[in-house]
Design a protein around this nucleic acid. Structure first.
Lengths: 103, 103
DNA sequence: CTGTCACATCAGCCGATGCTGATACCAGCA
DNA sequence: TGCTGGTATCAGCATCGGCTGATGTGACAG
């Protein structure tokens, strides 16, 4: 396998609310106010999740007056999708050829 | 978006040890004994994780005498990689066209 | 300067989950 | 029928992480 799947990135994206946020941001760049409207979550909670996403490199921020826009970084998602695809391809070959270790 | 990313499946795969197990199983079908050797984890712990992976549909079991082989189900990983790829593609288009909601 | 609004930070609670030792189950073998 | 070895289950513990209310910060309007 060339690239390995990033467990930390998986963990960050595995939370239901964060995944919802990422899905919303995939369609259009939004700021916290919009995300509060869309998700119904508290501003505090949302801010915490945005921090996690920011520190994981999933989103980047763009200040705009008092507002802060959150923009997704597609390369991160591409890389994850790619490494998972590789894993799936490897698994498929293993299953189809019946490769197994004797015990 | 056609398919949405499965948060539960992400959660299952987000654990470091489980991801390690899945990566090992992608190369060759193994039984618990091998996984204990490879990961150094306790048999009890490993058995718990295998139950989680089994219930999530990530692996399927094949009894072989007193042993139990665990085989990955590639379709599950393919689907996840695919939906993540779609998400990434959507995000890329959003970023490149500068699509954002006014606040 | 003062008030308001958008957002971030902090401390605390609490439920979820990973890890472990003890134990049960089950297949093969003598 | 016992014994051994591979695996599953159970109860308890400890930690992690998400949610919340209170509070801080920084920018705009009047």
């Amino acid at each position: 396998m060339l690239t390995s799947v990033d467990a930390e990135l998986m963990r960050v994206l595995a939370d239901p609310l964060r995944l919802r946020i990422v899905t919303l941001l995939a369609r259009e760049t939004l700021c916290t106010t919009h995300l509060v409207e869309e998700t119904g979550a508290k501003q505090t909670n949302l801010s915490n999740h945005m921090k996690v996403l920011r520190e994981a490199g999933v989103v980047e921020t763009e200040p705009c007056g008092r507002f802060v826009y959150y923009r997704l970084r597609p390369a991160i998602l591409d890389a994850l999708a790619g490494s998972l695809g590789e894993l799936a391809a490897t698994a498929r070959e293993t299953v189809e050829t019946g490769r197994k270790r004797a015990c």
